[in-house]
């Protein structure tokens, strides 16, 4: 079975995000970079499929040179080889361009199932997985918390929570599956795994090598800090009952929400 896991490198969830004074981007100094948490679930699921069905896991990443570290992490977890798409022309690429580059890289290798995180916690757009599926002409099963591949390896059943319900959906392979928290508990890279990862092959490619024309269709014209919230008030009172009654009164009379 040929399994692909797409990984992105993102600032970790504790990172403070500061916008550059000219609004052209975020200040990357001091940021700790990690594998996108949702991609970790994808890599873990890819490794479990490999353990069950045999085959190979190829990890595909996109981004500047620092992304090699995240690629190596996925290899240290147990993936077999990597493709790192690295091209300054792709910095700040929109979802379509990113997916087009990933699709070009993946189209060139055998692929039965492709895992992506359901969204990356930096751009938060959740679009790359579906666009990738469309560009490869294969179905998508998005935001899944459980994935069961049939023994014949031809169809997959997945649990997909939606607002107020949970769906059991079925798709045919090859397909793109986007991972939601709950899919599994990602393993840590072991020390021997980390040593081995250093020797695993990673193919670095630029847009030209993939035959991708970079034409960004939606771009961030300006980054801005979040709207500031006005200072709130501390609700006073001598005892819990007084404080609670005052809070209820404020919610009703001042905020008019209850």
């Amino acid at each position: 079975m040929n399994i692909v896991a797409c990984v992105k490198q993102v600032p970790d969830t504790e990172a403070q995000i500061k916008v550059k004074p000219d609004g052209s981007g975020i200040d990357e100094s001091g940021i700790k970079w990690v594998m996108n948490p949702y991609d970790e679930y994808g890599v873990e699921e890819a490794l479990r499929l490999k353990e069950k069905f045999g085959g190979e896991v190829t990890v595909v990443s996109l981004g500047p040179a620092r992304v090699m570290e995240t690629t190596r992490t996925a290899l240290a977890m147990g993936s077999d080889k990597g493709i790192h798409i690295c091209d300054p022309a792709l910095d700040g690429a929109d979802a379509y361009t990113t997916a087009a580059a990933l699709a070009a890289a993946i189209a060139g290798i055998p692929h039965d199932i492709i895992f992506c995180g359901q969204r990356a916690i930096d751009d938060d757009s959740g679009q790359v997985g579906p666009i990738l599926a469309e560009l490869l002409g294969i179905p998508q099963l998005t935001v899944v918390t459980k994935a069961d591949l049939d023994v014949d390896g031809k169809t997959i059943k997945a649990i997909r929570p939606i607002e107020g319900a949970q769906l059991l959906i079925e798709g045919t392979l090859p397909c793109v599956v986007t991972a939601q928290k709950g899919l599994n508990e990602p393993r840590y890279a072991s020390l021997p795994g980390i040593m081995k990862a250093k020797k695993k092959p990673v193919d670095t490619k630029d847009a030209a090598a993939l035959g991708v024309t970079v034409a960004v269709k939606a771009k961030v014209a300006r980054f801005i800090p979040p709207p500031a919230r006005a200072a709130g008030k501390i609700v006073g009172g001598d005892d819990p009952a007084t404080k609670a009654a005052e809070l209820a009164r404020l919610l009703r009379e001042e905020a008019k929400v209850i």
Partner: peptide, 23 residues
């Protein structure tokens, strides 16, 4: 930008080869 909308919008971006701002 509901769960269904997010699932559909990416697919449409691919079919229409266009740009999109999510959520």
């Amino acid at each position: 930008a509901s769960i269904q909308g997010k699932d559909l919008s990416g697919r449409l971006v691919g079919k229409l080869a266009t740009g999109m701002a999510a959520d």
